[in-house]
Amino acid sequence: MRRSLTALAPQLITLAALVALVSVFFPGFVEIRLIDGRMVGPIIDILKRGAPVALLAIGMTLVIATRGIDLSVGTVMAICGAVAAWSIDKGLGLGGAVALAIAAGLVAGLWNGTLVAIIGIQPIVATLILMTAGRGIAQLITEGRILTFTHDGFSWFGSGTFLTVPVPAVIWVVTGITVALLMRRTALGLLVESIGINRRASALAGINATVLLIAVYMASGLCAALAGIITAADIRGADANNAGLWLELDAILAVVIGGNSLLGGRFSVAASLLGAMIIQTIDTGILLAGFPSEYNLVIKAALVLVILVLQSPRMAAEWTTWRAARREPKPAGRVQEDAQ
């Protein structure tokens, strides 16, 4: 426990610093009130609004750990949302809508996984196909309209509460914990990492890399389906043009802010989730601070840049050097560190 907290320290410190920064512009930032049996406050909003990116980041972490990337997740969200709205519209009910949406996500993942693992197309290209074509599929399902529905049971996934906590937040936290436990309490995580480090070697060592790769892309599709359900339930409609638009990039950013390498190998789901919360804190913070909207993206970019620079290996090396120099202020120690 202690060790994992140390590993997450950069992300936790960043998040705390951001919360402090936003509190300067918006003093009531950390206040949480209880209204009508639901928790209300900016922090709760962040946990709720960050759900789609957090869910996508869970799947993306696994894919990136295999040295892959999944650009299609935003589009898969749109497809799954469209499927869910269509099912409700056709009267298939809550169970049918959720099952079909999740099935759509899994099929999308199977498609990506097959292209990558069996046909051998590079992940960035393989998933780009669905990223571009998928919005067309979603539009075919919704017939180019925003497909709206009224169904209180389904809306619960977007705006309901579970023990006073917004449901989207519960979904991503539970999914995150489940995936993390599955990866770390079994050998699965190790196998995923080994594929990312060297797929050939792991195949030679007896790992069924092909099946595992497909499974990882399907997991990513499943996460995208959950995110799509939340988004559709939130606005009580499927917006094929805009649901999940560019969210794949936010998900990749979350993984990177979480300190995971795009070159695959070691990964941490918890760190990626913290990355997603960091991004959402920036987004919500900008909205609350009340800057003109022309500055939104500039502020976000500047903050992300600062975070990434502070987390870069170079800065980490400098930090270690500085600490070592402080501990034993001998010039010899410094030279030794620099030589590495």
Partner: peptide, 12 residues
């Protein structure tokens, strides 16, 4: 968009 409209209104 609807989704952004809702999110921004929440912050307002």
């Amino acid at each position: 968009t609807r989704a952004q409209g809702k999110e921004v209104m929440e912050s307002f």
